[in-house]
Simulated assay, not measured.
Amino acid sequence: MMPRRLDARTGSHLLWASAVLATLQACSVTQQQEAASGHIERELLSHTLHIETGEPRVLDTPHRSIRVSENRLFRVSQYDASGNLLDQHRQYQTLPWANHVIDIQLGELSVQRETDSEGHFRLNLLDEDIVPVDFEQLRTIELEARNSAEVHAEAILLVDRELRAVLHEASELIYDNLEEDDVDQWVQRIYRLGELGLKEEASQLENMLILLTTGDPHLQGDFIHALDQSNQAQD
């Protein structure tokens, strides 16, 4: 007698059954492996922020690079498949508090700055949104980083007496009535900022005035000529 061949329908059913069986076996193996591997738990024990203002604590220049870090302490517990504790240790993370807002209080004036990807931000007391402050009365700068009501940090910087006088004069040199001055007075402002030890601000003011006079080549030429003469006189 010739062996009986499976018809197409029966063969299809057998293939389907084989596929289901293989899937069930794979799931069973995976579950067994997961059960055998146990699990790990992490418990947050503490979460704090820290503002690193740098030294000295008394500001004697208008600029300061400040870093904010986020600190987390975990208890890490490893269990076997039966729930028995195999290992337990503490894990500490020191991370930058990146891309977050910092509140800054300068007397009655409040401003904000944002940290970069490394948790840093630059405090510049001659930024345009800060110069309205009464520098002669500015004694302290209060910094606050806040993640929640429970997780926050504060820091205080003091402002040197001589710096307060410099800031008062420098803010007027940089921002007051530039459009009413002639090119010689612009040059004098730049020169005076250099005398005050504010070379960065002097350079920024020079570049700003060159940009502002781009639409008036004659005025720009007069300004650059006056700058060159002043530099030659100082040499």
Rank of each mutant, 00 (worst) to 15 (best):
Leu6Thr: 04
Asp7Val: 10
Ala8Leu: 09
Arg9Thr: 12
Gly11Thr: 08
Ser12Gly: 10
Ser12Pro: 01
His13Lys: 15
Leu15Asn: 11
Trp16Gln: 14
Ser18Gly: 10
Leu24Glu: 12
Leu24Pro: 05
Leu24Trp: 08
Val29Leu: 15
Gln33Val: 14
Glu34Trp: 11
Ala36Ile: 11
Gly38Glu: 09
His39Pro: 04
Glu41His: 13
Glu43Cys: 13
Leu44Asn: 08
Ser46Cys: 09
His47Trp: 14
Gly54Asn: 01
Arg57Glu: 09
Val58Met: 14
Leu59Lys: 11
Thr61Trp: 00
Arg64Glu: 01
Ile66Arg: 03
Glu70Ile: 06
Asn71Lys: 14
Asn71Asp: 07
Phe74Ala: 10
Arg75Glu: 04
Val76Lys: 11
Val76Gln: 09
Ser77Gly: 07
Ala81Val: 07
Gly83Ala: 11
Leu85Glu: 06
Leu86Thr: 11
Asp87Trp: 04
Tyr92Met: 11
Trp97Pro: 07
Ala98Ile: 07
Asp103Gln: 15
Gln105Tyr: 05
Asp116Ser: 02
His120Val: 13
Phe121Cys: 10
Phe121Arg: 09
Phe121Gln: 07
Phe121Lys: 08
Leu123Val: 10
Val131Gly: 11
Val133Lys: 14
Phe135Pro: 06
Glu144Trp: 02
Ala145Thr: 08
Arg146Gly: 01
Asn147His: 12
Val151Ile: 15
His152Arg: 15
Asp160Asn: 15
Glu162Asn: 11
Glu162Leu: 08
Ala165Ile: 05
Val166Asp: 03
Leu167Gly: 08
Glu172Ile: 03
Ile174Asp: 01
Ile174Phe: 01
Tyr175Lys: 06
Glu179Phe: 01
Asp181Ala: 04
Ile190Glu: 06
Leu196Val: 08
Gly197Ala: 02
Lys199Arg: 14
Glu201Pro: 02
Gln204Ile: 03
Leu205Asn: 02
Leu205Lys: 05
Glu206Arg: 12
Ile210Gly: 00
Leu211Trp: 01
Thr213Ile: 00
Gly215Leu: 01
Asp216Gly: 00
Pro217Thr: 01
His218Thr: 04
Gly221Lys: 00
His225Cys: 02
His225Gln: 11
Ala226Ser: 12
Gln229Asp: 07
Ser230Glu: 08
Ser230Cys: 02
Ala233Phe: 00
Gln234His: 06
